[in-house]
Design a protein around this nucleic acid. Structure first.
Lengths: 246, 246
DNA sequence: CGTGTTATTGACCAACATCAAACTTAGTGG
DNA sequence: CCACTAAGTTTGATGTTGGTCAATAACACG
């Protein structure tokens, strides 16, 4: 079964918290999807848009962001393969943020009509979508606290912990390392820090032997230490006992 | 019709974005609710809890918050009369944050079972709950940007704009003033600033004739100026063209 | 009144931003 | 394969926003 196929990707993701019934799998496979590829850095959806489709990330990584006065940018969350980053557009007319590709991205667009029909036909699937959206909200909450009340050092450690755990539970990370295709300037937009300061904090994390980085792959050298540095408690990710992927 | 009654309060709120069918009103009225009163500052729900009920704010104001290392607190959002601040607990087992009363609060607790049954029986109502949760998420996103990328001055102005618009659309504010029962220290927890700095920014906002405050009621002296000061664009609140309350 | 909470003020300090330059890396075309 | 370029990283010097500390003033409530 080719997981690079949009429908199978969605089935895999929806099944991450428990097996899907065959009937539901069939329903998902019947969903109309329009596949589109995006270059690194392109916007998949833009603030102010009024989407008529939901977007599924089939391959690659993306992020949500907002622009504020003075041209500053705040990244709101990282989106992985299998994520549905604009489920909200089902109920909220206009996009209040943009979604941008962190890598080359293949996305599939599902008409709202089809999503709503699926939701109505198979309430159990609807609940899975709902759960996906609620976990997103939990992550936003955590980012408010991260950006608001933690030091630069804690923020970056925390971000790395979150990304590592999430990627791992999706089967996107090795046992002790992960690839995060973000420049230091983008890490700054995610943690509300300047590029220069991100650089200094990364050096400190390496100096203290919590992580080791080559390019954009980061190795977790001392997981307990990193969690502690980042004041990280993964329960907000609501993953039960980790993902049973595969 | 007594709006201080939990069921009517919920009906009013769900109808804020469009009239409710009689059949739906009846279904809501049949919902079992356990009413409970809370003192100022008491926790309605606590981080780590595994609620079996959803909480409806019948009267008063509350806030969600998280604690981070070092005992610092980050307020995540303000909850008004009619809000359902822990809808998420329907799908997410454990609370990742606490909810605390900003005033004396009357809350009604609705068993998850009953909510789920209502949702299944009346998908249209389910969609309204969903929308409520999605607007919450939009507000969290905005707070990430507010706390992350705006100056102290902008943050407080922005918070005031949000609270004013939301209260107004719920019929909880006068035309040009609102009561926000938060101390300066609590405003600091909401904007990730120190009490002292909140005080100074408030003075500046008053000096510049954007607001005038007596106690915890804040008068909007110059709405356009305040919006500009707070880099405020209300579209993220997704209120269509304002609330048709009453 | 007295007592506790909140608001205000001033002096000082630290974390992080900004600026500017050098260095590294990866990609491109001759 | 090497020069050339553009993007990203690293470093140092300096500046600013907002934090901390500590004291005083204003209120609110019993």
């Amino acid at each position: 079964m080719n997981l690079d196929t949009p429908h199978e990707r969605l089935i895999q993701r929806l099944g991450a918290h428990g097996k899907l019934e065959d009937e539901h799998k069939a329903a998902v496979r019947a969903l109309p999807m329009r596949v589109r590829d995006f270059a690194d850095d392109a916007d998949l959806v833009r603030q102010g848009d009024r989407p008529k489709e939901c977007c599924l990330i089939v391959r690659g990584m993306a992020c949500r962001y907002k622009l504020v006065s003075g041209g500053k940018r705040q990244i709101l969350s990282i989106c992985f393969t299998g994520d549905l980053p604009d489920l909200q557009s089902l109920q909220l007319e206009v996009m209040d943020h943009s979604i941008s590709a962190l890598t080359v991205v293949r996305a599939a667009f599902i008409p709202h009509e089809a999503m709503k029909a699926l939701w109505a036909e198979h309430p159990a699937l609807g609940q899975l979508f709902l759960k996906h959206a609620l976990i997103d909200a939990a992550i936003f909450r955590d980012w408010v606290a991260n950006v608001g009340r933690r030091s630069a050092y804690e923020r970056i450690a925390h971000l790395f912990c979150e990304v590592f755990i999430r990627m791992q539970s999706l089967g996107l990370a090795a046992t002790d390392s992960f690839r995060l295709p973000m420049t230091q300037s983008e890490l700054g937009d995610a943690t509300a820090l300047s590029t220069v300061h991100v650089n200094r904090v990364l050096q400190q994390l390496r100096r203290e032997n919590l992580i080791a980085s080559q390019g954009d792959v980061h190795e977790i050298v001392d997981w307990e230490g990193l969690k502690q540095a980042g004041d990280f408690d993964e329960s907000y990710l609501h993953q039960g006992r980790g993902g049973d992927v595969n």
